[in-house]
Simulated assay, not measured.
Amino acid sequence: MSQDVVIIGAGAAGLMCALSAAARGRQVLLLDHANKAGKKILMSGGGRCNFTNLYVEPSNFLSHNPHFCKSALARFTQWDFIALVAKHGVPYHEKKLGQLFCDNKASDILEMLLSECQEAGVRLLLDTRIEQIDAAASGGYQLQTSAGAFTCQSLVIATGGLSIPTLGATGFGYQVAKQFGHSLLPTRAGLVPFTITEPQLKALCGELSGTSVEDCVVSCNGQSFKENILFTHRGLSGPAILQISSFWQAGDALHIDLLPHLDLPQWLAEQQAERPNSELKTLLAELFTKKMAGLLCEQWFVSKPLKQYIPSELAEIAEQLGNWTLVPAGTEGYRTAEVTLGGIDTREVSSKTMESQKAPGLYFIGEVLDVSGHLGGFNFQWAWASAYAAAQFV
C-alpha cells in the first residue's frame, strides 16, 4: 500500500510529526510496535507530563553538535505548543523554573495529540513489527511489516532512545541509521539517579532513604545545578542529581553544597557566639530533618556544645557541609533514565528539515538524534520542534 509518509514510533515526536504533516495534506501512516501510543508521555512528570518549559534556550540542550538544535527550536517554540494546549482547553500550571505540567493528568496531552491526528486523517497502526526496510529503486522506501507491505516517499524514524526499556524502548532507530550509512555517537543513560556502593556512604543514603534536601548545589565537570536532592536506598536522586548525571562520567567526583544559601564559616562562628551551649546536632536539626542531623553527626562530626569547637574544627564542618565530595559507583542505567545521551550524529542530518544527508527521503526526529535536553520539559520541546521541522518537508 502506497503512502506519502510513513512514521515509525508513536511517541511524542512521532505523533507531533504525523499531525503536522497530515495537516499539510500529506497521507500519513503512523506505526508502532507497542499496544498503545505515547506510553512515555503517560508516565512522564509523575503522571502529569512536564510538556514544555517557559524558558527554552539552545543552551538547555546537550549535543556533540551544539548548533544543530537552534533552527528547529526557533521555528516551533514553547509558545506554539502552549497555543495547541490552550486550543484543546487542557488546564496546566507552572510548577517551578518555568516547568509546565498538566493540572490533571498526562493523558490530557496524549488525547490532544491523538485527537489532532484523527482530525487530520492520520492512520495509526499499533502492535506492528517492522521486519525490513529497503530503499525503493524509484525513490522512497519499501517496508515489510507484520501488518503487510507499505511503500512511501518519506520515511520518518521517531523511535526514541534506549531509556526505560519496560515501556518498549529499543535500539531500532539506531539500526535503521546504521543500515543507511549513518554514524552513531556512543550512547549512555542521562537524567538518571546515581548508585553508591562505598559502605559508609551507602549506609548513610539507606538510612536517609526518602529524605529530600531542598535547593542544594551539585557540581561536576564545570557544570552546576541548584535544585533538590533525594536520598534513596541505592544512592542519590532528585532533580539536581538527575541534571548533573548528564555531565558525569565514571570515576568523576560530585561536589554537593547542602546549604548554599548560608556563608557557613561565618554562620557557624555567629552561632557559636550567640548559642555557645547548643549542641551541633541541635543546630543542624534546624536546617535538616532531625534524623539527618543525627546521622551526619554520627558519620561526619563529633556533636558537642558549640563552645567546645576550635576554629579549625568549625572550618572542617563548613567544608563538609558546603563541599560534600563523593564518587558515585555508577548510575541506575537505562532502566530509570529519562533520556538517552548520544545517538545519531547530527552532522549527517539537515538541521532545517531533519532529513538524512546519506539517504534522501529518510528523516530522524526526537531522542534518536544526538540531542538531549535538561530536566524540566526540554526533551518534550525538542520532540515537538524536531517533529514539526520534519513535517514541513516530508
Rank of each mutant, 00 (worst) to 15 (best):
residue 284 L to Q: 04
residue 228 N to M: 05
residue 103 D to I: 14
residue 226 K to Q: 12
residue 266 Q to S: 08
residue 315 A to H: 15
residue 50 N to C: 14
residue 20 S to M: 01
residue 168 G to R: 04
residue 356 S to W: 07
residue 72 A to Y: 03
residue 248 W to F: 06
residue 39 K to I: 01
residue 47 G to H: 11
residue 43 M to N: 02
residue 394 V to H: 06
residue 187 T to K: 06
residue 61 F to Y: 15
residue 152 C to A: 14
residue 243 Q to V: 08
residue 209 S to F: 08
residue 39 K to T: 02
residue 88 H to V: 03
residue 348 E to A: 12
residue 386 S to Q: 11
residue 299 Q to Y: 14
residue 191 L to W: 01
residue 16 M to T: 13
residue 157 I to C: 08
residue 229 I to H: 10
residue 175 Q to P: 01
residue 158 A to H: 00
residue 132 Q to L: 11
residue 142 Q to T: 09
residue 325 T to D: 13
residue 336 T to A: 02
residue 288 F to S: 13
residue 250 A to N: 10
residue 239 P to R: 09
residue 242 L to T: 07
residue 176 V to E: 01
residue 231 F to H: 13
residue 180 F to R: 12
residue 75 R to N: 11
residue 82 I to N: 04
residue 269 A to S: 10
residue 140 G to A: 06
residue 255 H to F: 08
residue 73 L to H: 03
residue 105 K to S: 14
residue 54 L to N: 13
residue 194 F to I: 00
residue 241 I to C: 04
residue 89 G to L: 11
residue 23 A to K: 15
residue 309 Y to M: 09
residue 239 P to W: 07
residue 363 Y to E: 09
residue 253 A to P: 00
residue 147 A to K: 07
residue 188 R to E: 15
residue 165 P to C: 13
residue 108 D to V: 04
residue 373 G to E: 01
residue 304 K to M: 05
residue 62 L to S: 05
residue 358 K to F: 02
residue 281 K to S: 12
residue 53 N to I: 10
residue 139 G to L: 05
residue 331 T to R: 02
residue 355 E to K: 14
residue 219 S to H: 09
residue 87 K to D: 04
residue 349 V to K: 07
residue 182 H to I: 10
residue 226 K to W: 02
residue 291 K to P: 11
residue 107 S to Y: 03
residue 6 V to S: 08
residue 377 G to M: 03
residue 272 Q to K: 12
residue 75 R to L: 05
residue 246 S to V: 01
residue 325 T to L: 10
residue 67 H to Y: 13
residue 315 A to F: 15
residue 248 W to Y: 08
residue 377 G to V: 00
residue 138 S to W: 00
residue 193 P to D: 02
residue 360 P to K: 15
residue 46 G to T: 03
residue 155 L to F: 12
residue 309 Y to N: 08
residue 373 G to H: 04
residue 378 F to M: 06
residue 147 A to T: 06
residue 312 S to P: 07
residue 323 N to H: 13
residue 367 E to L: 01
residue 106 A to K: 09
residue 27 Q to V: 03
residue 92 Y to A: 06
residue 97 L to Y: 13
residue 149 A to V: 07
residue 106 A to Q: 10
residue 390 A to C: 14
residue 246 S to P: 01
residue 34 A to F: 00
residue 280 L to S: 04
residue 124 L to Y: 02
residue 111 E to V: 02
residue 167 L to S: 07
residue 296 L to Y: 15
residue 198 E to Q: 12
residue 248 W to Q: 06
residue 177 A to G: 04
residue 179 Q to A: 10
residue 283 L to I: 15
residue 62 L to T: 00
residue 45 G to H: 00
residue 158 A to D: 00
residue 299 Q to A: 14
residue 360 P to G: 14
residue 237 S to V: 15
residue 7 I to K: 02
residue 89 G to Q: 13
residue 265 P to D: 14
residue 362 L to K: 14
residue 268 L to M: 01
residue 140 G to E: 04
residue 44 S to P: 11
residue 393 F to R: 11
residue 313 E to I: 11
residue 68 F to V: 11
residue 88 H to C: 06
residue 229 I to C: 01
residue 72 A to I: 08
residue 107 S to T: 07
residue 180 F to H: 09
residue 199 P to Y: 04
residue 243 Q to C: 05
residue 205 C to H: 00
residue 258 L to K: 01
residue 93 H to Q: 10
residue 329 A to L: 05
residue 350 S to I: 07
residue 94 E to I: 03
residue 79 W to Q: 13
residue 9 G to Y: 03
residue 93 H to T: 02
